[in-house]
Amino acid sequence: MAEVTKGTRIQPSVGVKQKKLSTKSNLHGWLFASPWIIGLLVFFAFPLIASIYFSFTSYSILQPGEFVGFQNYHELFKDDLFWKSIYNTIYFTIFFVPLSIIFGVALAMMLNMKVKGMGIYRTIFFLPTLVPHVALAVLWMWLLNPGFGLINGILDMIGLQVPNWLGSETWSKPSLILMSLWGIGQSVIIYLAGLNDIPEEFYEAAEVDGANWWQKTRHVTLPLLTPVIFFNLVMGAIGAFQQFTLPYTMTQGQGTPANSLTFYVMHLYDNAFKFFKMGYASAMAWILFIIIMSLTAVIFMTSNRWVHYQGK
């Protein structure tokens, strides 16, 4: 469709007949796109706009509720668990996103080496991504079991003081970050594609100039990988703010211990579907939207300082 419109635009001297055709083919274009457009309007745009309105009401899904102005927002700012969930979410994002980039890039570089059987290694590192979140939660809960888990067993054998992982307030979030890092295969694939995109000539040139491995990594690989890192940073931050499935299944929705694993979206979900406070939950959703939007905007604004595109 894009090509057709482009074609008609390039020709300035179109006859009446052709103009007719272009409107007609435009019509066809819209017609073919209509399932998607209708879906977008009905199932996405409308609920999106409606939720702005709902955030000012006491809507409960089953009851239309009343218009309450900014009351939901007022109450939110007084809700201790709301602040706690924001803290938890930001904590997770700040640690998880950079770590996932560091580990992701490092893994991708290792998996990009010319070694025999690389396909097998790549598969092994990608496999955890295929594990459903619920299964992942159960698996790690057993590995991290403070009393009888494998990890503490090993740590104890070499004489280290063992943390209680998911049982302790201090260690529960680091444990979750650890578990999440296990599933970074997806971003590793993207980094790998990015690495393959870097032309061999740059390395050859660097070698001719006598650069060592570190200099090549520092001045060729990393700068040319920044567009991919940029992409993963934005997507990772958005994903981290929406952390839900893993902690929810792991704690049966309770965010235990002591709400240290109650993330923003978990609190939102509870309000919407368990406490029937859809208006309140809509207000939360919009606050989250504003947070994510501004964060993404900040990342985008800084991007032209550190993101280097090839051929620019």
Binding site: G147, L166, G167, S168, S172, M250, T256, P257
Partner: peptide, 8 residues
Amino acid sequence: DIAGFESS
């Protein structure tokens, strides 16, 4: 702190 044990 054995709550982790409980959730598992």
